[in-house]
Design a protein around this nucleic acid. Structure first.
Ligand SMILES: [Mn+2]
Ligand SMILES: [Mn+2]
Ligand SMILES: [Mn+2]
Ligand SMILES: [Mn+2]
Lengths: 217, 217
DNA sequence: AAAAAAAGTTAGTCTTATCTAAAAAATTAT
DNA sequence: ATAATTTTTTAGATAAGACTAACTTTTTTT
């Protein structure tokens, strides 16, 4: 259907649309794709010709319905493959992304549907991101940063934003891991620091820590 | 490492070397790859520059040790993915090839080794072709055509050469299937026809039938 | 052994996806 | 409201891989 490059652009634009207010900027796409802005201009023109994006010179790019559907198809493949790599092949949490980046481009609807079935229709990928269904519907909730929760809220740790060894060791030392239930016992308005409860134990964490933990509520 | 196109050429040359006496001809590669001879000339020159083939203008192409190793790597990936598609995802025997043709190009040694382990180190792919190990060694026997067997020989049906509905129905009607044990009870020198025994039952088959069944002895 | 046919190569073109450098438009600072 | 800066686009170049058409070498036929 679409080339690997086109699929990667669509996915990048999809991800950027979630945070951009209006259209996605050429520079933003270039940043995400690790290419030059001039390459992006070329590609978004091609995507516009194929009715996959709305592109207004100097103004920005947005996905059309057709483009969004295509992007969600790639996102679905990516996340299902990530689950497979982690659950079935026992890859580590941080090893799956690069391989899924390639596998997401395999052309076969049947393949991904059978894989989905084999994995028993997972709702989330290993990073806590929801998996769209066959029709591109995302029924599951998007993950949130722990820092966004209020006092009294609780949820489950589904992923980390920062992956440096320092940070992962910080979590390890406190037995905070993917799947842990976390409750916000208190939150300081002044600096955003929190007191949280994890498996009975209480920890004080800074805003910086809370901004790097993804939660499902 | 190598591009998808280079990998496909290496694999094609590897397959053709098995039947060619001397070097593989440009036209033969073009046929296998479904490209034009001029495209092949371009590519074999590039492969020769990379020490993957020995190419002598107008004479033919052979794989170097380096090229053979690379080709076997692709063959290994292809066959392991085929096993996965059939065994794990329940694809039909004749649906797996096209998808494996894409999956064989995923760049990750770790991925294929884990998949191999997950499948419990299969020796053959669903078509009865042996799977090279990590180092490119093929310890298992190559499949043979039933037509090559002699009176008294027996083996296991591992694949079919022809895949037309007519032929598959012919087999179905007689309950001859992949995995069936077949014994040659008699063979006519005049026309190559055979009497075979399959699960207690005896059948008379023409040479044409016997030339389309692959056997492991 | 010459002529004809087939096989293989070269030269030049095309497409896709990149890039650099220069120009134009939009934004921000003065 | 200008000027400076940043963002974006255009123009032209490059590399991979494929094609057509023309040419050369090899093989087969007569
Ligand atoms: Mn990708
Ligand atoms: Mn993910
Ligand atoms: Mn292939
Ligand atoms: Mn096979």
């Amino acid at each position: 259907m679409y080339s690997k490059s086109e699929e990667n652009y669509l996915k990048a634009i999809y991800h950027l649309e979630a945070i951009a207010k209006h259209g996605v900027s050429t520079n933003a796409i270039a940043g995400e794709m690790e290419t030059k802005p001039s390459s992006v201009t070329d590609m978004v023109k091609k995507l516009a010709d194929k009715q996959l994006v709305n592109y207004v010179k100097y103004k920005g790019t947005t996905l059309t319905e057709k483009g969004k559907k295509a992007a969600l198809g790639v996102v679905r493949k990516h996340r299902i493959w990530e689950v497979f790599l982690l659950e079935t092949l026992d890859f580590q949490w941080d090893e799956v992304h690069d391989i899924a980046e390639q596998l997401e481009h395999i052309k076969s609807q049947e393949l991904i549907n059978r894989l989905d079935k084999f994995l028993d229709y997972p709702d989330y990928d290993p990073h806590g991101d929801p998996i769209p269904d066959k029709n591109g519907n995302i029924k599951s909730a998007e993950k949130k940063l722990l820092a966004e929760l209020k006092k009294g809220n609780q949820g489950q740790l589904v992923g980390v934003r920062e992956t440096s060894p320092d940070f992962l060791q910080f979590l390890d030392k406190r037995s905070i891991a993917i799947g842990s239930k976390i409750k916000v016992l208190g939150k300081e308005f002044f600096d955003g620091s929190m007191v949280i409860q994890v498996q009975g134990e209480q920890f004080f964490i800074s805003k910086k820590i809370a901004e790097n933990l993804y939660i499902h509520i």
